[in-house]
Write a protein that binds this DNA or RNA. Sequence first.
DNA 1: CTGAAAGCGCTAACAA
DNA 2: TTGTTAGCGCTTTCAG
Lengths: 342, 342
Amino acid sequence: MSTLVEVGRLAGVTPATVSNVLRGRGRVSESTRERVLAAVQQLGYRPNLNARALVKGRPQTIALIVSSIANPFYPEFALAVEQAVRKHDYFLLMCNTNNDPAQETAYLDAVGGSLAQGVLVMNADFLRVDELIELRRRNMPVVLCMWEKPDLQPELPCVAVDFYQAGVIAAEHLIKLGHQRIGAVVGSEPTGNHQWRYKGFCDTLARAEIAHPPEDVRFTNDTIDAGRNAAHGLLAAVPDLTAIFVSNDLPALGVLQAAADLGLEVPADLSVIGITDIQFAHQVRPALTTVSVPIDEAGELAVQLMMEVIADGEKQVPRMLVTSTPQLVVRASTGRVRRSRD
Amino acid sequence: MSTLVEVGRLAGVTPATVSNVLRGRGRVSESTRERVLAAVQQLGYRPNLNARALVKGRPQTIALIVSSIANPFYPEFALAVEQAVRKHDYFLLMCNTNNDPAQETAYLDAVGGSLAQGVLVMNADFLRVDELIELRRRNMPVVLCMWEKPDLQPELPCVAVDFYQAGVIAAEHLIKLGHQRIGAVVGSEPTGNHQWRYKGFCDTLARAEIAHPPEDVRFTNDTIDAGRNAAHGLLAAVPDLTAIFVSNDLPALGVLQAAADLGLEVPADLSVIGITDIQFAHQVRPALTTVSVPIDEAGELAVQLMMEVIADGEKQVPRMLVTSTPQLVVRASTGRVRRSRD
DNA sequence: CTGAAAGCGCTAACAA
DNA sequence: TTGTTAGCGCTTTCAG
């Protein structure tokens, strides 16, 4: 690993000059520039990013904290974020807390130790928000990535997706198809992450004067297996459901499986709709009808907001960027009510 | 962001002493230790990792280069790597080249500029291996993560998975079920990444004296869509296939879809087997029979090898760590030959 | 247009 | 047991 002074020595100039030609600062004569560039080439010089980060006070790194990359939604988002971050010449540090508070603390400490210039946080739920606010107080830029409630500004800058509206859209679709008894599988606690989606769904049903008694809903986890189990329970308890609203695609895939297990035809016997539109949604059979959320856009906005926050420095006023509205994507898992099951 | 000197000032000692208590080096009296710790607490001090990296010559960061995190296999592996890396107190830098040479070069340059202490490379294929060897010559530890040919040592240290054997296992399973005309969908060029898997398959067929003419194979890409299209073509051209070997789970999922499209019952009309056992393999219906490769183990071995290489310093002898053998996982997509299709 | 010098925050001898 | 010193590789005034 050669250094600036070695390059300088080879080119017969001082390190300062090398630094200048390398970043196009200061006026340098054509001849020295060429000599320097040649030396750089010859030595295969690469600037030491740590040294640079040290003198600049902050590294060219943004951390993305997610609870688990195992959920296929996160990689999709992480990819979007990474691309966006690269456009601004930053690097992405992946931080999987894996729902482990110890990991999370370790990451936050490291980031606080200027391992990164800012933190993008995916699942504010799984993190002790206090720690984030604490971090922010230390002038560490923090941006929340997937705030689910656009009409409620959290204490930190965030990118919001209108998941309430996604719930509304899903419900409207089902209602329009003539469904009158619609079950729900929610991939979180009643007061958890998915509550707004469910609320959008419920409010819409109420507006259409469609009954939705408490036994028609199951609260569970955000996984395929959980979705399948919940659907089994739900369908056993309430056999005359003709449709199920699921708060996320992953459990929706599980509901689809439960239908298959029970010999139910989708959508003839049962319609299923999810939310998010992860890649796999259109790769299962029957392909999943869902309400797509703008993942890439959210990633880009998050990074954009991060850049603003970084630029603003001290006066980090909490701010919210809202993505475009989720969109209905009709595929094969929803259809008109045809007949009641026997 | 407070610094060592500030902490020292508050505790009435010099930065060196603070450094010592913080890392348990040198003998420090109990009383000063306590005073220092209190000061650290009070100021919320976090060591500046850049400064540390600079003086130590290398940061606590390992880079993982993958061609695209969009392929669901990579996140699974990335997760495993991240966990392993954390166990050694390193951080993981995610580097998605996205099959873009410019990105790749940018990453490699950055890593060369000591953004990371070592590089884990997922898809040696997509990278100009020369660049990696060049990097290694600069004393940058490089480890290849998923070498497919255990009996051929590449020029760099690597973790190998016996994919040839995986092909053998898949073929044996199909043969044992009585299949005599077995098609193949390979998710790479004939000389690409998946060639060894396919070779294992072919050799096994030959050993069993089962014919496998060239028209029974399709070479395509490693995606669901590609698998589906290839299967459509294959089944149209060779209708009397009773089973299809697929070199990876993703295209195997596509083959399953093609079967559904064509009204073929799996496995009654057609058996399908994949390789890898990604999470989704058991979450589609019919669940995919596959040959599982030890993803977590590969991740751990890769990191372990990386630690060795880092410790060894100069004398980086190329070395290979081989994971345990892939295992047959029988699910619902393969079965005995029942009848020929009409 | 180029050089000299200081300093980012930390660690690691070596002194005291 | 603690302090002093030097320096990691780079950027950035400020002089020349």
